[in-house]
Nucleic acid binder design. Structure first.
Ligand SMILES: [Mn+2]
Ligand SMILES: [Mn+2]
Ligand SMILES: [Mn+2]
Ligand SMILES: [Mn+2]
Lengths: 227, 227
DNA sequence: ACATAAAATTAGGTTACCCTAATTTAGAGT
DNA sequence: ACTCTAAATTAGGGTAACCTAATTTTATGT
């Protein structure tokens, strides 16, 4: 019996754990993420533990079992494939795809996922630059770091965004910054770390440190000084 | 709060009512259709009545209110649009589309439905020949009758099927009969009403009366003798 | 160490959905 | 009218998912 709510719990644990690998995933974290209350989550954790999908104790928090991890990665796979399909095939914007994919990810038809994955050309990354796990749950590797860690003069390419909110994505779209765009860090304000960037066709934009932390990049020059 | 179960109840009432307009839709009918038990259905009918989506009494059975009808037709619309999309765009067979559409029909995004409806060219009928309601719930008209009512010599075109089971649809596919194919009734066995048909490229096939009742056709000749 | 604040847990309830086992009604046949 | 059957309804439960209001732990700041 694998309901979409159960899928959401497992996915939440996966997301929270991969977001910050150092901290434990607490009932409160999950509750906040899923917009539920801690007792509700705790109750469900008990059930997931009994089903062997999760382990939990208050010190280590919730962790996915191998079985639970497999289920979670499968949902993540479906989510990111749908996002890519919506983006590339159905011309939705990268700020719209997440919400619809939240629903589509629970449609249970392996053949359908396979079909749309073929249609979009079996890509490794979704419209936000997030890796698409393969059927075995293996994630394609990619080497990336936040734009906020760049030093002056660094030329880098945008490989992803860590935040998926419409607000943030529309903000980037307004700045005319997209996936795979190249950026040059012209200046870094030493007071508040605001970045002056030059982007496509030498447009210059200012970006807060807060925003820069959410943008994942890779240096373009092989021996760039940003580590 | 409109859950997919509620959507399924409303759709079931709609389907049962349109299948046989003479008979009332009883709790037992609905229970059978949804693979539930009558008390379960009765309970839900009470809730739907309270919500103003349905009227019910044991003599007239369950009827959709204008509001309930609107919801039901919207689900039917989504279902048939998805079926068509799966069929035309994603190359699923007409026997596969129903099951997947049963899930996809509950995805709540008007923009998504609009988009895929545009992609498939805003057709009036789905892969089984069923009419796709417009946003206002209006059904395109079509003039059709069961193939079993044809008389000898009738030349007609297949516009739809009344049964959607994989078994039946695969059977038709094996007979090489598809939507929009033209058939000629060569002979009707007077004992059991078995039809001898000639179909595409003069293949001759035999078809039981039972199967012929499930095939919806229209006469090709303007003044065909089958009324 | 001690007071406090935050997080986890327990207790106790609600609603949505489903079920089985009566019981009551309605219909059909005689 | 009377009987028998099938359908509708009532009674009584169960589970999954949520919640609020305690209570208990755990962590934190003096
Ligand atoms: Mn997403
Ligand atoms: Mn994404
Ligand atoms: Mn269908
Ligand atoms: Mn159909």
């Amino acid at each position: 019996m694998k309901t979409y709510r159960e899928e959401n719990y497992l996915k939440a644990i996966y997301q929270l754990a991969s977001h910050d690998k150092t901290r434990t995933v607490s009932p409160t974290d999950i509750a906040h993420w899923l917009e539920l209350k801690p007792p509700t989550v705790l109750e469900k954790l008990g059930i997931l533990v009994k089903k062997g999908l999760v382990t939990y104790n208050k010190f280590d928090g919730a962790k996915l079992s191998p079985k639970g991890n497999e289920v979670a990665l499968n949902i993540v796979r479906r989510h990111r494939i749908w996002e890519t399909y919506l983006y590339k095939q159905l011309k939705f914007s990268w700020s719209e795809v997440h919400e619809i994919a939240e629903q589509l990810e629970h449609v249970n038809s392996e053949k359908l996922i396979d079909r749309i994955y073929d249609v979009i050309g079996r890509p490794d990354f979704d419209p936000h630059g997030d890796p698409i796990p393969n059927k075995q749950g293996k994630l394609p590797k990619s080497d990336r770091r936040p734009l906020s860690e760049s030093i002056k003069g660094c030329k880098c390419v945008v490989l992803g965004v860590s935040e998926h909110s419409e607000l943030f994505l529309n903000y980037l779209t307004e700045l005319n910054i997209r996936l795979n765009d190249k950026l040059v860090v012209e200046q870094i304000n030493s007071y508040d770390d605001t970045l002056k960037l030059s982007s496509k066709n030498n447009e210059t934009v200012l970006m807060s440190s807060k925003a820069a932390q959410q943008i994942q990049v890779q240096c373009v020059k092989p021996n760039c000084a940003c580590k």
